[in-house]
């Protein structure tokens, strides 16, 4: 088997260049999808038969919550690859995920509170789903704090990777909390095995938002990754060529 692709995958100048080329290909579709979904979600989608116009918070809440969990998955997977195959670029990817993940976890909590108040009558309850999502925020912050607290890069990579991997246990808890426990949080409307419980006008903007946010994350993460690679490679001669 030819392993050249694997070594190229781990080569910082190669990744730096690829990341730069790919970024606009993620950023533009993301912007268009989010703009279209905004119009679809706020204007075209019919009001919910129970929640009226209030349900439209869904279009910012669900994509943020999806990003929060999805980014953690990417971060922990990259951290695992970095630990197992000692691939430094993988650690750089993990490190580039954490900040964005923390932001959108906070957004999912805040938008959830703003949705909870009119629908449940309270901003916050210590519900399994909500609590697990709050723990996710602490995991991100702990990961970032741990990295910031260790000067030696190699040790910071390893220690933070272990934390990220251990924290994965929280992900199924978030995902299945509404099924395992008698949660106040409503069950998922899209990712069900049977038919989605939404009319098309409502569902289409949501799916576009989910895809748009995912592409947006890819673009932002790649820019952060380039910064991370430059900082790690500080003395490498290829950076001279790139910056010329």
């Amino acid at each position: 088997m030819n392993w050249t692709w694997f070594h190229r995958l781990g080569s910082p100048p190669h990744i730096y260049r690829i990341a730069g080329t790919l970024t606009p290909w993620f950023a533009w579709p993301a912007g268009l999808l989010i703009a279209a979904a905004l119009y679809g979600g706020l204007v075209l989608a019919p009001p919910d038969y129970q929640q009226g116009e209030g349900f439209r918070i869904l279009y910012v809440h669900a994509p943020s919550a999806w990003l929060a969990v999805m980014i953690y998955g990417v971060m922990a997977s990259a951290a695992a690859v970095g630990l197992i195959w000692r691939m430094k670029v993988a650690h750089a990817v993990a490190a580039s995920c954490a900040g964005v993940g923390a932001w959108f976890t906070a957004v999912s909590l805040l938008t959830g509170m703003l949705w909870g108040k009119p629908m449940w009558g309270t901003y916050w309850v210590w519900d399994p789903r909500l609590t697990a999502q709050l723990i996710l925020l602490f995991l991100y912050l702990g990961y970032m704090g741990l990295r910031a607290g260790i000067d030696d890069l190699g040790r910071a990579d390893k220690a933070s990777a272990v934390l990220a991997i251990v924290g994965v246990v929280n992900i199924p808890i978030i995902r299945y909390s509404v099924e395992w426990w008698n949660s106040i949080h409503q069950a998922p409307s899209v990712m069900k095995m049977d038919r989605p419980s939404m009319p098309f006008d409502m569902l289409a903007p949501l799916l576009m938002m989910l895809l748009g946010f995912t592409l947006y994350f890819a673009a932002v993460m790649l820019v952060r990754l380039r910064a991370e690679i430059l900082r790690r490679e500080r003395t490498a001669s290829w950076i001279r060529e790139v910056l010329r």
Partner: peptide
Amino acid sequence: MGGYAVFLWPAYLVTLIAI
């Protein structure tokens, strides 16, 4: 927004700020 403006628009604003 059918009376939900005080909850809905801040939610959208928070998301926009994050983006």
